[in-house]
């Protein structure tokens, strides 16, 4: 059962179907959303675009849910899907090793070359010890996503999931459709 949902694109933000007002677009939109709706988590600025997007979407979702006690819990999973995996971070990391004359790989760039890092960022923020997973499918398909989330309730402890689509191909092109889902 879907309890809440959040949609973010470079030009539009909706929480439970209602438009959220904003002035910026693209990457600047994510920063604006951070400043207006979160503001107390400077780690945000270290994240790659995928993690920023997933983090902001999850925060908007959890703010609507209310009761943000940040108590450790194991009954909530974070299961995300997308098309481009960590392409934006991959492209950035590749640029640091492409030219033998300026070969300068860094751990800070490399760590984000895994799409599931965003699920870790959300877990760290909220102290979620539950399941985290990242799945790639080549096209957005709500049926596949919902079926997969439904299956995830086979875990003996999971009773709710932050789940859905979090995709970005570069810093200015992204889309998130994130759901807070309860056991159906």
């Amino acid at each position: 059962m879907i309890k809440h949902q959040v949609f973010i694109s470079p030009n539009e933000v909706k929480v439970d179907g209602k438009a959220l007002t904003h002035n910026e677009k693209g990457s600047a939109l994510l920063t604006e959303l951070y400043r207006n709706h979160i503001g107390d988590y400077p780690k945000f600025f270290k994240m790659d675009t995928l993690s920023k997007l997933g983090f902001i979407a999850s925060e908007l979702l959890l703010n609507i849910e209310g009761d943000r006690s940040f108590e450790p819990r194991e009954d909530r999973a974070v299961i995300l899907f997308n098309r481009n995996a960590s392409l934006q971070a991959d492209t950035h990391y590749q640029s640091t090793i492409q030219d033998p004359g300026s070969f300068f790989p860094s751990p800070a760039a490399f760590v984000y070359t895994l799409p599931n890092i965003v699920t870790g960022e959300i877990s760290i923020r909220n102290k979620y010890f539950g399941e985290t997973s990242f799945i790639v499918i080549d096209d957005y398909d709500e049926q596949i996503i919902m079926k997969n989330l439904k299956n995830a309730f086979q875990d003996p402890m999971t009773t709710s999931i932050i789940g859905g689509w979090v995709d970005c191909s570069d810093e200015e092109h992204f889309e998130a459709t994130l759901f807070l889902v309860y056991k159906f």
């Binding site: 870790g120 877990s123 760290i124 010890f129």
Partner: peptide, 11 residues
């Protein structure tokens, strides 16, 4: 089987 997160550090 089960999957669980440390909720501690990304790397």
């Amino acid at each position: 089987g089960a999957i669980r997160n440390d909720a501690n550090h990304i790397s």
